[in-house]
């Protein structure tokens, strides 16, 4: 159902007249601190998990900022920081080629195999 009426959305307070928000520019300003991605191990034995990003001038600062911003409530025991530009991401357009071939390889999953009930500990 697409019954469209005008609404005012929270967090959206309108703009000055005659002045549309600029669409993003391709490059960020020269002197801005680079962006870093933060990964935190929430407790011993678990993987580091991406929790967010932040700006920092160097790796030491990124590490300290990550500690100050993302572990204020005891969220972690270990931190990784990676400068965002160093992350290579898969292209969403390739998703079909990359991930769909795995869909029909159900023999990779343990539940594929029917075994006699008498067999224990497997």
């Amino acid at each position: 159902m697409k019954n469209l009426i005008c609404r005012f959305f929270y967090g959206d307070y309108g703009e000055e007249k005659n002045n549309t928000t600029n669409l993003p520019q391709e490059e960020s300003p020269e002197n801005q601190w680079p962006l870093w991605e933060v990964f935190i191990r929430s407790k011993q034995g678990l993987d580091h998990k991406h929790v967010g990003s932040l700006h920092a001038a160097d790796a030491a600062m990124a590490m300290e900022n990550a500690r100050d911003v993302y572990t204020r409530r005891n969220e972690g025991v270990s931190i990784w920081v990676v400068e965002s530009k160093n992350i290579h991401a898969s292209n969403p357009d390739d998703a079909a080629a990359l991930f769909e071939p795995a869909n029909d390889k159900i023999y990779r999953h343990p539940s594929f195999y029917e075994l006699p009930d008498e067999l224990k500990h497997m």
């Binding site: 469209l4 009426i5 005008c6 609404r7 005012f8 959305f9 959206d12 309108g14």
Partner: peptide, 26 residues
């Protein structure tokens, strides 16, 4: 007032509802 103008007087379009950027009326 924080919830924004009444539903029938709001300046922004319903597009946001359709796009599920937002789901409830003011």
């Amino acid at each position: 007032m924080m919830f924004g103008p009444k539903d029938d007087e709001s300046p922004n379009t319903m597009q946001n509802m359709q796009w599920k950027i937002k789901r409830f009326t003011n």
